[in-house]
């Protein structure tokens, strides 16, 4: 039997995604071995993150200042908007250091089997931003899955009539991968999206 306070910690940790009961126990025991000051900092970080981090009121990327640093950065091109499903996708694209425009986070993708339709995503807010008149191109960077494809098709149908260019991220082969190991669907799409050399 675990002491009650420890059992409570294990139970709380095991509610986190990807943490099973064994991992939760290992993490809890690790916390007990940590210096008290570090435990305090961990607890404080949890509470502060929850209290301070909010979706940006313009792009809905997570931020502790509103609007977020990307939306307020004068060095970023306000005429190009990259639409993503999730804040994690913003972080991934930022890591590539290639994109200099701004973002719009939808909060998911159309997924009828889960009951998620267009009205459950931040599409109305996107259209409002587009009506501002400053945006010339929307890059749809939804995931290359059926749900992401459906969302892209739906957005294109709404945005094209506004006279704004709509593009989609190319589907291709993973860099550093082997052609021979690519699945046939990815290969077919990579062939479709080939470019002149």
């Amino acid at each position: 039997m675990l002491p009650e306070a420890l059992a409570r910690l294990v139970e709380q940790l095991s509610r986190l995604p990807t943490v099973g009961p064994k991992t939760a126990q290992r993490l809890a025991l690790h916390v007990l071995r940590m210096p008290e000051e570090e435990v305090r900092q961990l607890a404080q970080a949890l509470v502060e993150a929850k209290a301070k981090v909010r979706p940006c009121s313009v792009c809905f990327h997570l931020t502790d200042t509103d609007p977020c640093p990307i939306c307020t950065n004068p060095g970023r091109d306000p005429s190009v908007l990259c639409v993503v499903e999730d804040s994690r996708d913003v972080l991934a694209i930022e890591r590539a250091r290639e994109f200099r425009g701004r973002y719009h986070v939808l909060g998911g993708a159309i997924s009828p089997l889960d009951g998620v339709g267009p009205e459950d995503l931040r599409i109305r807010e996107l259209l409002e931003r587009l009506r501002g008149g400053q945006i010339r191109e929307v890059i749809v960077a939804t995931n290359p899955r059926v749900e992401g494809d459906a969302t892209a098709l739906y957005l294109a149908r709404l945005i094209r009539p506004l006279g704004i260019r709509v593009t989609r991220l190319a589907h291709g082969l993973p860099v550093g991968g082997d052609l021979e190991y690519a699945d046939e669907v990815t290969l077919a799409r990579a062939l479709e999206g080939r470019r002149d050399l």
Partner: peptide, 17 residues
């Protein structure tokens, strides 16, 4: 082993729906 990926369904929102 894919027999048919129905990739063309994914290019048409109505068929997909």
């Amino acid at each position: 082993e894919v027999l048919d990926g129905y990739a063309d369904l994914r290019e048409d929102l109505r068929r997909l729906s």
